[in-house]
């Protein structure tokens, strides 16, 4: 009896690798009760896949051995390609002294460049610079905080903000100044572990839709954490620094939380957790 299925090979492959739905599997099983060709092919492929999964390393030992030889051979060929140096006769001994002196001179130059040169050029010393920048940022944050809490005094606050902005213009923000991210470079470094968490939990946050802050959002002052939740369960909001150290933990209600504490500029991660599971992991930048 001839089989009329045109996509038999693909169907069987999908069946064996578990890519079909239960209904599709049952339908194909029914077909196999009527079709010898499909049944034999399915059975063979199923047995083969199971056998390879169980004994693949033994059955294909020759292939695996060849792969190993290939890898070792590749490394060996790389080593062989390296120029063979015989240092004893190729480099005369008198060369060592000037090379050593040169190396010391290069090191001294870099040390001098980083410490002495800024003073000579009349620039603000690095340490004062950081303190001044920090003060400016604190003023900005306080003003933004006041702005969010007292909308009536907005005009006055705006005026003072302009003043504050005028003051640090030469040292921060502007094209000619130094970026906050440069000053707090350590705080903006990413944590590989948390990045992985963000990647996996921000995508599969099926129980939660986060409204704010968005992933990678730059925030200033107060932060409004907001989300929509499918299942009603106690949720914990946790804020972590860029080294994955937990800084704050809250138990918010009504799917939102206004965070009013001051955070230093940097990268922060945040998590939403139920009693026994992580529901969402996001991150934001405090500028």
């Amino acid at each position: 009896m001839k089989c009329e299925l045109s996509n038999r090979e693909q169907l069987i492959e999908d069946y064996v690798t578990g890519s079909l739905s239960q209904e599709e599997m049952d339908a194909f099983d029914e077909h196999c009760f009527n079709c010898d060709i499909c049944f034999e092919e399915l059975r063979l492929k199923e047995e083969m896949a199971a056998l390879i999964k169980a004994e693949g390393k033994t059955i294909f030992s020759d292939y695996l051995a060849k792969q190993k030889v290939k890898r070792v051979g590749f490394v060996r060929s790389l080593i062989d390609k390296l120029p063979r140096l015989n240092l004893e006769w190729q480099i005369p001994q008198w060369v060592y002294a000037p090379v050593a002196v040169g190396a010391v001179a290069v090191v001294c130059f870099f040390i001098a460049k980083n410490t002495i040169l800024p003073d000579r050029t009349g620039m603000i010393p690095q340490e004062n610079y950081v303190v001044e920048q920090k003060e400016t940022l604190e003023i900005n944050e306080q003003e933004q905080l006041a702005e969010s809490q007292q909308p009536v005094q907005k005009e006055e606050t705006k005026h003072s903000t302009e003043k504050a902005q005028d003051k640090p213009k030469n040292v921060s923000g502007g094209a000619g100044g130094v970026d906050v991210r440069q000053l707090y470079a350590e705080n903006f470094k990413t944590s590989p572990f948390m990045e992985e968490m963000v990647n996996s939990y921000s995508v599969r946050s099926y129980a939660i839709t986060v409204l704010s802050p968005k992933i990678d959002e730059n925030v200033k002052g107060n932060i409004l954490f907001q989300w929509e939740e499918i299942e009603q369960a106690p949720i914990y909001l946790k804020i972590l620094n860029n080294q994955a150290v937990e800084l704050y933990s809250f138990k918010p209600e009504n799917n939102q939380f206004l965070f009013t504490e001051k955070l230093k500029p940097g990268l922060y991660y945040w998590k939403l957790e139920s009693e026994d599971d992580v529901l969402f992991v996001g991150k934001f930048f405090m500028e």
């Binding site: 056998l51 390879i52 693949g56 294909f60």
Partner: peptide
């Protein structure tokens, strides 16, 4: 059938072993 298959799989050429191993062992 498994006994027969085991024997036949061992006899396959390396290029076929390679794809079968990667597909069904390494998934």
């Amino acid at each position: 059938i498994r006994k027969m298959l085991r024997h036949l799989l061992e006899k396959l050429k390396i290029k076929y072993k390679e794809v079968l191993y990667l597909r069904y062992y390494e998934e």
